[in-house]
Simulated scan of single mutants.
Amino acid sequence: MSLCPFWGGVDPSTGEVMDRHYPLAGQRLGGAVLVLPSGRGSCSGSGVLLELILSGNAPAALVFSELEEILT
């Protein structure tokens, strides 16, 4: 598991992972179930998640193994 950087790492209009260092680089998150230890970054990640939802490109579910307060 690695951390998904929503802010700056995911295109909110397409759901494509743009962070080339992330294992899912080049793939789209729409409809996926992401299993992550926690989020990464500031509260702007939740804004990207909202944009993904509004564009219809959001993951189907986010599962965290650690307490997550920003993305949830």
Rank of each mutant, 00 (worst) to 15 (best):
A58I: 05
L24A: 15
E69H: 11
E69I: 10
T72R: 04
G15T: 09
V33L: 10
S65R: 14
S44W: 00
E66I: 11
A58M: 01
W7G: 08
S2V: 09
L50S: 05
L62M: 03
S2E: 13
L36G: 12
S13D: 11
E66F: 06
G8I: 08
A61R: 14
V48Q: 02
G30Q: 15
G15C: 09
T14A: 06
V33N: 07
P12Q: 01
S44M: 04
E68Q: 14
V63N: 02
G45Q: 01
S44F: 06
V17L: 02
L52Y: 01
I70D: 04
L50I: 04
G45E: 11
A32T: 06
P23H: 05
L62E: 05
G26L: 03
W7E: 11
Y22W: 13
G31R: 04
A32K: 14
R20N: 13
V17P: 01
T72P: 10
E68K: 02
E16G: 04
L62S: 03
S55M: 00
S2N: 11
F6H: 05
P5L: 08
S46E: 08
P23V: 09
A32H: 09
S13N: 10
L3R: 15
L29F: 03
L3I: 10
L67Y: 10
W7L: 09
A61T: 02
G9Q: 02
G39E: 06
P59L: 02
F64R: 07
M1L: 13
A25D: 04
L67S: 14
V33C: 11
A32Q: 06
S65C: 08
V35N: 07
P5F: 04
V33I: 11
L52A: 00
V63M: 03
G45A: 06
C43N: 10
S2W: 00
